[in-house]
């Protein structure tokens, strides 16, 4: 392990059952320092439960979750090690932003002036003396983030931090998180929308149904996304014939032939495993009139949806999708 790995997050065989429901099921992953890691999964995938177990709020049924090798509840002054924000609504509405931070300053082991510093850092200085009850969701997110930064911790855990932020706020958050990771901090950001964190994260940990479905760098995840060639012709039958003759493979979930394409007539095909030059040449050689010929990426979002789609059986191997990218070709 590199020397800066002292504040890695280690989740090992973590399991939590609520009655009959397995909210988190034998989940293992590592979050490395110096990187922003996206903790992704659809609603109800078990993200929040996992974070709450990591933070000692929920008792795991089995397994361990440690930060820098120690359980959260064993940390001396936890706010100096981990800054965590779980819900943007966790404020007393009658308390001002500054007082909210002053409440936690002693436990973070910092003087009161640090409260002003973090308010500056998140751009809330102007609202320091205002009661939180009047804050917008975006302002609450900023205040939650300010609270996590109070103790200048090497580890940050943020649950859906982009919720309620305007586009400018999202860009600001991205820059801040990137800067914090660049300082060597461990940054874990949960989200149920990959696109929300796509430009922020270095690594991804994707869970669904309480189980790990994928853990890799973002680049490796991109490798799972195959480019597609979309081709449209007014002559659907000729297009189908060409596709069949050339042996191109249609994308499983792509638009099938038949009506569609430009003007609503003709055929459209979405092809994988080929490129525009090949398709264009073949169409030219066949004398087929084309109205559209383009490569479009399957967004990462599609890959994400495919990975997190409800598993057909309980026995599905959690690690299997992660092994695929090597075969699927390089990232674009």
């Amino acid at each position: 392990m590199p020397p800066d790995a002292t504040h890695a997050i280690e989740v090992s065989h973590l399991t939590k059952t609520f009655g009959q429901v397995r909210a988190v099921d034998d989940l293992s992953f590592t979050v490395r320092p110096g990187r922003v890691t996206g903790f992704l999964g659809p609603n109800g995938a078990g993200k929040t439960t996992t974070l709450r177990m990591l933070l000692g709020l929920v008792q795991p049924t089995a397994g361990t979750a440690t930060i820098g090798g120690r359980r959260y509840t064993d940390l001396d002054r936890p706010m100096q090690t981990v800054g965590a924000a779980l819900e943007a609504a966790d404020f007393h509405p009658g308390r001002t932003a500054l007082d909210h931070l002053r409440v936690f300053a002693p436990q973070a082991g910092v003087p009161d002036r640090r409260a002003h510093e973090v308010l500056d850092l998140v751009g809330l200085s102007g609202a320091a003396k205002r009661r939180v009850g009047g804050f917008s969701l975006g302002m609450r997110q900023r205040l939650a983030l300010a609270t996590t930064l109070l103790g200048d911790p090497p580890v940050l855990l943020l649950d859906e931090p982009a919720n309620g932020l305007d586009p400018e706020g999202i860009r600001w958050l991205r820059d801040l998180l990137r800067a914090l990771a660049a300082q060597g901090r461990t940054v874990l950001v949960s989200s149920h929308v990959l696109s929300e964190v796509q430009q922020t994260v270095d690594d991804v940990v994707i869970i669904a149904g309480g189980r790990l479905v994928h853990a890799s760098t973002l680049a490796e995840l991109s490798g799972l996304a195959e480019p597609r060639v979309r081709v449209a012709s007014p002559d659907a039958a000729a297009l189908d014939a060409l596709v069949a003759r050339a042996g191109w493979q249609r994308a499983a979930d792509g638009t099938a032939g038949g009506a569609g394409g430009v003007g609503g007539v003709g055929g459209v095909a979405e092809l994988v495993g080929t490129d525009v030059a090949t398709v264009g040449h073949a169409a030219f050689a066949a004398g087929l009139e084309l109205h559209e010929l383009a490569t479009h990426g399957v967004g990462l979002e599609d890959v994400f949806l495919r990975l997190t789609a409800p598993a057909p059986a309980r026995g599905a191997h959690a690690g299997a999708p992660a092994a695929a990218p090597t075969a699927a070709g390089g990232a674009r």
Partner: peptide, 18 residues
Amino acid sequence: TSEFRHRTLTPTLLAQPD
């Protein structure tokens, strides 16, 4: 009770897990 009502128990126990 206000800690429960306003759900501030979470940040409270993050600051003092004991």
